[in-house]
Amino acid sequence: MKPYVIEGPAQICFSGGRTSAFMLHQILAANEGLPPDCHVTFENTGKERPQTLDFIEECALRWSVPVHWLEWDGFLEGEPQSRPCFREVNFHNAARHGEPFAAMINASTMLPNPVKRMCTINLKIRTGSAFMRSLGFREWDSVMGIRADEPLRVARMRDPARDNTSGVPLLPLATADVSKRDILDFWKRQPFDLALDPQGDLGNCDLCFLKARYKLVRALINEPERAVWWIEQETKRSGTFRKDPPHYRDLLRAADFYRRQLSLAFEEEDGDSSVTDCYCGD
């Protein structure tokens, strides 16, 4: 069994995370480079963290592999049900302030949510599919970095009833029985790494609405400015990214509260070691 030996046509989906980067590295090693008719793509929403973009560029340069940076650029027929248009950009001119994401929300006239994940569908999946079709392919493998320790995702991708018009899923990491621990061990041995939390609390997409509330608040304690874009989108649509509250404005307030409490606790600790601990989370 040689899970990393692949044949084209294929789209190698590079999200910019450690797992998909590991997968790309293994494919390059097993095939002594990028196989014919295989294309590495990164679909940029404009809301990826700068560390993610830096990491993608470093992988491309260090491993001498071309990465196609793609951005959603409208619906072909002006309707959300139609195929998307895309533009190809690069590390230097890629959107960094959520422009493709905001434009897609405006064109769709609604916010994505956990049930209708239009961001993933349009900005990622359909944009990558449009790129492959632009090369003349009608069928291709979609090589994805889903690990063996993600059984629900593996089962969903391998479901015979799945719509594979955006590529037939190929899951080399699952086939090779790779786990998250394997990924982290690999990057510990490399001369470079993704400069983000190894446990994935922050993720590639800043403040993604699928993340747990406490993770979003934790991120906003350190980077409150990241809430601005999300608050603007909810305000424009008079809605929320999730049915269950809170709004991003409320998440920011919670982060501000905890930041003040932590600051006060540290000040009291420095000034008087006898002060009782602050239980601001109770």
Rank of each mutant, 00 (worst) to 15 (best):
G145F: 01
A95H: 10
C85F: 10
R96N: 04
I121Y: 11
G74A: 09
R147T: 12
N106A: 15
I146M: 07
F137C: 06
E139C: 06
P80S: 03
A107W: 01
E139N: 12
E88F: 00
P80C: 05
S129V: 01
H97K: 13
N106M: 09
C85K: 13
A102N: 10
T109C: 12
L135C: 07
E77G: 11
M144P: 09
L152V: 13
T120K: 05
H68W: 02
R87G: 00
S142L: 13
A102V: 15
G128N: 05
M104I: 02
L123S: 10
L135G: 01
C119N: 12
R147N: 10
R117L: 11
R126H: 14
P151D: 10
A130L: 06
E139K: 12
N93S: 12
P84T: 09
G78P: 07
K124W: 03
R147E: 10
R117A: 04
C85N: 15
P112T: 08
S129W: 03
E150Y: 11
P114K: 07
M144C: 13
L123M: 14
T120W: 07
P112L: 09
A130V: 02
A103C: 05
A130N: 04
K124D: 03
I125K: 11
P151M: 07
L111E: 09
R83A: 15
R126T: 01
A95R: 02
F101M: 14
L123W: 09
L135N: 03
E88P: 00
E88Q: 14
I146T: 13
M118S: 12
L70W: 08
S108Y: 06
N122A: 01
D141R: 08
D141C: 04
W140L: 04
G136D: 11
V89M: 07
V143S: 07
I125G: 00
S142H: 12
D149P: 08
K124C: 02
E77F: 10
N122H: 15
A148E: 11
I125E: 10
P100A: 08
F86Q: 00
M110R: 15
M132D: 05
I121Q: 10
M144H: 02
Q81H: 13
P80Q: 03
A107Y: 01
N113H: 13
G136Q: 07
T120N: 13
A95K: 04
F86H: 00
N122E: 15
F101D: 06
S108V: 03
L111H: 10
R147K: 14
T127H: 08
V89L: 05
F137K: 03
I125T: 14
I121D: 13
A130F: 04
W69S: 02
F101L: 14
W140E: 04
E71F: 05
I146Y: 08
D73F: 11
F131Q: 03
T120S: 15
I146G: 02
D73A: 15
S82T: 14
F75K: 05
P84M: 07
R133W: 02
N122D: 15
F86K: 00
R117M: 09
N122M: 04
P84A: 11
C119S: 15
W140T: 04
G145I: 01
G78A: 08
E71D: 09
M118V: 09
R83L: 10
R133M: 02
L123R: 06
